[in-house]
């Protein structure tokens, strides 16, 4: 099954967090790999969304959405850093 990356859940994450999240930084609770959410290995063809660490494939994030409810499990991430003013895009 082909995997995607965190860009594919940019919309869902922005909807949940109210801000652009693909540049947010996460630290894997299992192996310590630190990177931007865009770099997570993401599986969207599941009963929910699963995002895994690009370093060790441990589950970082699970998201399930029904019509009215959203369930989040971010327990695989030890820490997340969200920038109110995201860093400038490439080219600047």
């Amino acid at each position: 099954m082909e995997r995607l990356d965190g860009n594919a859940i940019g919309g869902v994450l922005a909807e949940i967090f109210g801000t652009e999240m693909t540049v947010a930084v996460g630290v894997c609770g299992s192996c310590g790999t630190t990177g931007q959410m865009a770099e997570m290995h993401v599986y969207v063809r599941a009963p929910g969304i699963v995002a895994r660490c690009p370093g060790c494939e441990s589950v970082l994030v699970k998201i399930v959405q029904s019509e009215r409810r959203t369930w989040l499990d971010f327990s695989g991430l030890r820490t997340m850093q969200i920038d109110a003013t995201p860093p400038p895009a490439a080219g600047r």
């Binding site: 965190g6 940019g10 919309g11 909807e15 652009e20 693909t22 865009a38 895009a89 490439a90 600047r92």
Partner: peptide
């Protein structure tokens, strides 16, 4: 439609490095 989405994979003009 919902968007725009993505702050990681974006390009702005004015950079000093080649693309």
């Amino acid at each position: 439609v919902r968007g725009p989405i993505g702050g990681y994979f974006v390009w702005e003009p004015g950079g000093k490095d080649p693309l």
